[in-house]
Amino acid sequence: MSLTNYLVLAAILFTIGAVGVLVRRNAIVVFMCIELMLNSVNLTLVTFARASGTIDGQIIALFVMVVAAAEVVIGLAIIMSIYRTRRSASVDDANLLKY
């Protein structure tokens, strides 16, 4: 048992989140996947803070959480606006910006 376990777990969670972004179409679920990716990064930061013996990693993880909260607020507001005009929360339906 070493800190590597935490890091590998974080990598796997990150990958699951990324694949979720790619395969899910519900915008809210996609957002959840992004949250999962952010959380796995936080786990990495906390782990490295412990390994390096400084507390800066935790501070940055805190900042990530704050930024994630702001991002969630804005993102969900955008999803609401899109839903209100298009009656759909599918990311595939918002595809007008193309060739």
Binding site: A18, V21, L22, V23, R25, V91, N95, L97, K98, Y99
Partner: peptide, 17 residues
């Protein structure tokens, strides 16, 4: 080349991954 700009955000995310 522009045809690759499908407008599907998931395709773009796939290329990012």
């Amino acid at each position: 080349l522009g045809r690759t700009q499908t407008g599907f955000v998931r395709s773009y995310a796939l290329s990012m991954l």
